[in-house]
Design a protein around this nucleic acid. Structure first.
Lengths: 122, 122
DNA sequence: GCTTGAGCTGGAGTGCACTCCAGCATCTAT
DNA sequence: ATAGATGCTGGAGTGCACTCCAGCTCAAGC
């Protein structure tokens, strides 16, 4: 799989993919005859997971730490599990806050609607 | 209310409060005899709301836009309502993604637990 | 055999959202 | 009346996460 292809599939730019490789988030893929990156078929999966960690607020440094543990093999499973459990708690807290703010938005929108009705003398 | 007090109550640093004033997120408060900021009692409420918009991913530029509309008075209620409704949708989407990723975390943690059990020959 | 397009590298630049600093003024307690 | 805490300003600096660029190589099609 070529980098342009992976970029299209993952939604990350080509520059970002190379950047992720440089900082250790993605394993350096083998190269083809021309020295171009040739990603393995499972690359999109890993990138999708990285994006999910990203979207749920995990910091680059922690994602790098997780990627390194993953690359180190099966002996790091306990550490990886702990990282995921901690992150799970972060997500839970975010969920709670989002739910609260969503309810607040609903109240505010309602108040604004009433105000608009009064302003137009309904 | 003095800036140190507001900082303690809001969780924002003193520098951030002054920065928010500079970019138009907070109205410039009146000054006391010494030229020090003297915030009105409703300041913490507004800041709390700003923080909630922030925590749910609203960009600085949009928060500034909202703050300006708010400062312009009651005639901007329709625009404000629209901003909040749009943001409400963003939050809803985030909620959905967080829920999905939380479920994924649960699955992954479970898999890792099983792996650990196998590794220790339970 | 030459143009076009994709990819390569190392390094510089960007945008966001703060955060810190020097140098000064004012108030408060001793 | 002096030391320490608190606050002020304008401007520089920081950290994160990319994003862009110049100048190059290589493969394929006309």
């Amino acid at each position: 799989m070529k980098i342009s292809n992976l970029s299209a599939q993952s939604g990350l730019s080509i520059d970002t993919l190379r950047f992720y490789e440089k900082i250790g988030l993605i394993d350096p893929p083998p190269r083809d005859g021309a020295g171009h990156r040739d990603y393995p078929p499972e690359a999109p999966n890993w990138i999708r997971f990285l994006s999910q960690l990203n979207a749920t607020g995990m910091k680059q440094a922690d994602r790098i730490r997780y990627a390194r543990l993953r690359a180190a093999g099966v002996t790091t499973v306990p550490q990886r599990r702990q990282m995921l459990e901690e992150h799970r708690e972060v997500i839970r807290a975010q969920l709670e806050q989002l739910t609260d703010v969503l309810a607040l938005m609903d109240r505010k929108v309602e108040i604004y609607q009433k105000l608009e009705e009064e302003m137009t003398d309904v």
